[in-house]
Structures are given as C-alpha cells and as structure tokens.
Design a protein around this nucleic acid. Structure first.
Lengths: 249, 249
DNA sequence: CATAGACTTTGATCTATATCAAATTTTACT
DNA sequence: AGTAAAATTTGATATAGATCAAAGTCTATG
C-alpha cells in the first residue's frame, strides 16, 4: 500500500459528488457510512442555506428534519417565561443538529450566522439509524462529546468570573472558526484572526452575562493587548496562550 | 394475551435472581437485554456498597469500571486549578455511571451518599456494547436525557436567581428520592418528605452558590412555609406546586 | 450523657456584575 | 455620500450574592 499518505487523492467514483468535498464527510456522521450508504443518504438529503437569525426548530414543535452543519453557527437556546434567555449550545461544522428518538424539540434551534445545512428528513434518517449500527455509534459518540462540552460550560457558568468566561468563549470560537492562523514569522505568539459569528447579545446569552459586561470584558482584553477588534465582529487574537490562560483563571 | 396488566407477575426462571428485583432491571440499561444477555451481564458484574464521600473515579485516571446506580446518589464534578468546584451531574438509580469510548475520566465521580452500585468491568461491557445494538441504543437514549438535563441546569446557572435554583434543586431531588408522598387525606397540597442526600457544601457546588447563600434560601423557604427542615437533612415539602412555581421565577 | 469537632445558620460588610442612561460606532438605506 | 436605525461602548449607580466572622446545631465518640 503506497497511498497511506493521503486518501483523498483518489477520486471515489462511488461517492456522491456533493459529498466529495463536504465538511461532514469524514469528521461528521457521514464518516460512519459505506459508499452505498452515503449514496442513499445523499439521495434523501438536501443542502440548504439559511440567513442569520432564522428559527430552524421551535420549542415544543415537531422538528421537521435533522441536519449536518456545513458552514456557519447554529445556536440552541432556552427561554424562561419572563423572557430570560440562555444559549445552551453552539454548533459548528460538522456537527449534527436534531434529537433522535424524540420528535418534539425542547429548545429553540436558530441560525446565529448565515448557515449552510445538509438537511435530512426525519423519517428517512431514523430508518437509517435503525439499520446502520455504525451510524448510531457515531452519533452516540458525538452526543457524548456534546455532553462533555455542556458540562465544561456548566463549570464556566457556575464558577467562573465574567473575565474568564469571555476569554474562554473567544478561545473556543477561535478553535472552531475557519482558521486564519497568521504565519509565525510575522510576530509569533500564536496570532489568530476570525469574524465573530455572534452578536454581543448572543454572546451574553451564551455566557450568562449582560451585553454591557461582555463589552467591558472585551475592552479589558483590548487594553491588555490580547485581542484587537474592528467593526464589532473582526477579531484578532494576538496571544492565544495568554487568552487561554485568562480563561483558566 | 391476558398478561398485559402486569408482566412482573410471572417469575422468570431464566433471569438471574439478583436482577429480579433490581432497580435497573426495567428502567435502566438492563431493560434493553434479552434474558440470556442479562445472565451474561450478571455473571461479569458485581454489586458493591460504598460509603459516603468516596472517590469512584478520579479526573485523568483510567476508569476501572462502569456501573448502574442501584441506591444512593453519585456526583460528577469538575475542579478548577484554584480549588473552585462545580458539580456537573447527579446520578440516581437506575442511572449508568461511566463514559464509553474513552478510558480516562475527565471528571471526578464520587459518592454523595451511601451508594449501592452494580459494577461492570470495562472490557466486558465494551464487548457487550459492540455486540448488542439494543444495549447501545438504550445507553445512547440515556445519554440524550443526561444532555437534556445538563442543558436544563445550564439555564439555571446562567439565568436563574439563588432562590429559583434552590427551589428547583429541592424539587428535582424530591422527584428522585425514595418516595414518601404523604396521603392526600392528611392535608393535601402535595406534601412530600425525604432525606437530603447532599451536604450544604455539595448543594452549593451543584448550584454554583456558596453554602451561606444556600442556607439563607432554605431559611426563606421555611419562613414561607413551603418546606420544613429538621436535623439538617430531613426535608418535608408542604407544597410541591408552590416549590415548583418558585423554581420557575 | 458529656463534650469535641463538624456542619449549618445568621449577621455585617464588600464586590462583581446588573441596571439605567448616554455617548459612540457601525450598518443599512436613500 | 448622508442620515436614520441598530449595535456597541462607556459611565454612574444599585444590588444579589460573596466574603468574613460569630453563634448555633448536630453527630459521634469516649
């Protein structure tokens, strides 16, 4: 075998065209499928693009589809009767959206940014889930990771200060966004830049803070020269290590 | 079929004796097993009792076993470098303890009270998980419920007041503890009583508060005649509805 | 059953973050 | 480009819950 260095070098005629370059192809649930299974999934699924600020599934409503996130950020949130809101999860490519074994969503699923999804009709997917153990195992594993992440964030909300939460949030986003790592030559220190996919209001709802507190903490990070921000959304992190350290205490 | 009214009326000679009356037999993962599979699980598993305050699995350590909780409460917690602690989950019978597909635990698993477990060696269980799709599906479903619960608690930590958290905590515990529902005749209003399985310190670590704040909130609930407390641990809830309402806002 | 040590409650104060209120920047629309 | 609306930042003040400090309870042990 001489192809071990790169398995994407061979064009797989068996694999649907759309899937060839897909974010979910290897790291997402599709990575658990054989070519014929992938072909079937591809037949019943459909790529769709959604604008920012749309509701994909509403609390207490029948969720119409499952999906893979291909681009952008999806937010999962809960609302209290008096209007207080908490974002309980953020999903990036190639995460899976939707809850198997339960048709009613108990949260709001909304687009935090412009989002591209590969949507899969409920029925067809549940069928596949029952037929293909490796698919179920993959989804199970992704759910375990989501549980880990949720618990990690529980620590932030229960025990971390605003400063730690904001630093941790930026660090987490930096790891998930299309990677603009600057070349180490031009200043090293682990510089990274990206566009924030969330408004200050969403950030506050994720971190259990107010927008004013989020803003003040961002200003502090700017003063400490850890980040630069332009046009509200454009972030340059000058020192990922320091940022990460700030998120730890 | 005339046995639909009660399926526990027939003594199943095929089912291990220990499992006959087990809490995990139907609602826990064992409910997903055929008699022969249950017999096998029974052969490799072992009931053990643990005192309060013991560490079952430590952060970064290889977890030696999986287990079903049969009695008592297990707490899952995370600790920050400076000692701040957050309990990220509580497990009651018949919950499953342990994380498949990952040998190192990334949290502390400790007994919050005296606990009885049905422990299952790592290797043997992973084998079964691979062989029995219905077992994996059951565990997947339980994981989804844990994720729902974790997200629910995220809302409490991010957006609820101390008063709401404490009321919600008591309500949740009431639903999980061996049920001493008082007869409606003797005063109605949904009276319930139970022994708190956690110290004030654990309660604080679960709710993201200090012990003083927990104590003050309990005192307020006493003054409002919603609960009575004796000997620190013995709780009588006089009005479950009001308690639940207090937890919502 | 008396006493020490561990919990828990209560009180006094402090502080991080919320709230209320402008000012400023950014975006979008004519 | 010029302006209105929206989003964000900054400032002043209020407050829920933390922290520090006793004073009570409870439990366990001799």
């Amino acid at each position: 075998m001489t192809d071990s260095e790169n398995d994407s070098i061979q064009p797989s005629a068996e694999i649907p065209e759309l899937c060839q370059e897909c974010t979910a192809r290897h790291r997402g649930i599709c990575g658990a499928l054989r070519p014929d299974e992938l072909t079937h999934l591809n037949k019943i699924s459909k790529q769709k693009t959604f604008a920012e600020g749309l509701t994909l599934m509403a609390d207490q409503q029948e969720a119409p589809f499952f999906a893979n996130v291909l681009e952008g950020v999806v937010k999962l949130s809960k609302t209290l009767p008096d209007g207080r809101q908490q974002i309980v999860g953020l999903q990036f490519a190639p995460d899976f959206v939707g809850r198997p074994f339960q048709s009613e969503s108990h949260l709001f699923v909304e687009t935090a940014s412009k989002v591209k999804l590969c949507t899969i009709p409920r029925k067809g997917f549940e069928q596949m889930l029952g037929d293909i153990p490796s698919l179920q195992e993959r989804l199970f594993q992704q759910t375990l990771v989501e549980l880990d992440e949720s618990r990690q964030w529980l620590v932030a909300l229960g025990r971390k200060t605003a400063s730690e939460r904001v630093a941790g949030f930026l660090h987490m986003i930096a790891l998930h966004m299309p990677n603009n790592k600057e070349s180490p030559s031009q200043g090293d220190k682990n510089t990274t830049s990206f566009d924030l996919p969330l408004t200050r209001s969403d950030m506050a709802d994720f971190m259990g803070l107010t927008i004013e507190t989020v803003s003040r903490q961002l200003s502090k990070l700017k003063k400490r020269n850890i980040v630069s921000i332009s046009h509200n959304r454009r972030i340059v992190i000058h020192d990922m290590e320091l940022l990460e350290k700030t998120s730890r205490e």
